[in-house]
């Protein structure tokens, strides 16, 4: 592992003055944020706040107007092997003739390198990752023959197989039952305890309060970032959620306060 002083000191993900826009209006505006290593971090904000966009920009998947994103202190282009990404809704072809095991093997492709084939050691690791997400029994199934929650587990296993120091997940708990959510959360905490960074977009503030260490509150601009207890105050939450609601009046209890 790269446990030199430099990488240990560098935050897992650092975003500097990031501005990004789609057709006409900025979706992210001058966002500054850091996420530490060895922590379970959440990105929280209303729908359309730009959370997914922030992750995509951080991974260099979309062009940004300004600013930069650094993975462990380096631009993402030169540190692809340090970050694993689980997208929000996989735009994959579920009818593709591919098994669960092969999907997870893809997590190894970057390390294996071009042209070379998947080795025995990779296969052991893949079996391991499937075991960790509780999908070992499904290894030979075609990917489309799984439920939504099971598919989510497989994509998390693929990210695990990348053995990256930084894991970035976009709403891994969307459409997942309580049991699966608890399993995945336990797994993410294990990863955190191994010293990696796990950054998750999540909507349930209760879980974030209970299980996460660090949080970024985002609504086009970074509203607050830091340890969960400091950041999730009624004041900042109102700033993040209240404005986007627009129609909410003072008497109405905002959803998050319940």
């Amino acid at each position: 592992m790269r446990s030199t002083a430099e990488t240990l000191a560098a935050p897992a993900l650092e975003v500097r003055r990031l501005t990004a826009s789609y057709s006409s209006r900025p979706v992210l505006w001058d966002v500054d944020a850091t996420f530490p290593m060895g922590a379970l971090s959440a990105i929280v904000g209303p729908n359309g706040a730009g959370k997914s966009t922030l992750l995509k920009a951080a991974l260099g998947l979309i062009a940004t107007d300004a600013g930069q994103a650094l993975i462990q202190g380096r631009p993402v282009k030169t540190s692809r092997d340090r970050v694993a990404y689980v997208p929000q809704r996989d735009a994959v072809d579920w009818d593709f003739p591919i098994t669960v095991r092969e999907v997870v093997e893809m997590g190894r492709y970057a390390q294996i390198g071009w042209v070379r084939r998947v080795q025995r050691s990779d296969q052991t690791l893949v079996a391991d990752c499937l075991e960790r997400v509780g999908m070992a029994a499904y290894a030979s199934r075609q990917i489309g023959q799984l439920s939504g929650g099971q598919r989510q587990r497989v994509f998390i296993a693929r990210a695990l197989a990348q053995q990256a120091q930084v894991m970035v997940m976009d709403e891994p708990f969307a459409g997942v039952d309580a049991r699966t959510e608890a399993d995945i959360l336990g797994l993410l905490q294990e990863l955190r305890n191994e010293g990696r960074a796990v950054i998750v977009v999540h909507h349930d503030l209760g879980t974030v309060r209970a299980a996460f260490d660090w949080v970024l509150l985002l609504n086009v601009r970074a509203i607050a970032a830091g340890p969960v207890a400091d950041v999730l105050t009624p004041e900042t939450l109102r700033r993040a959620y209240g404005a986007a609601g627009g129609l909410e009046t003072e008497e109405q209890e905002p959803r998050w306060a319940a």
């Binding site: 006409s24 209006r25 900025p26 601009r221 404005a243 627009g246």
Partner: peptide, 19 residues
């Protein structure tokens, strides 16, 4: 807007452009 936007009673839902 982020701070006080919720106090405004806009007649309709609008997509605000930050810039």
């Amino acid at each position: 807007w982020l701070e006080h936007g919720w106090q405004l009673q806009l007649p309709d839902a609008r997509e605000p452009n930050p810039s």
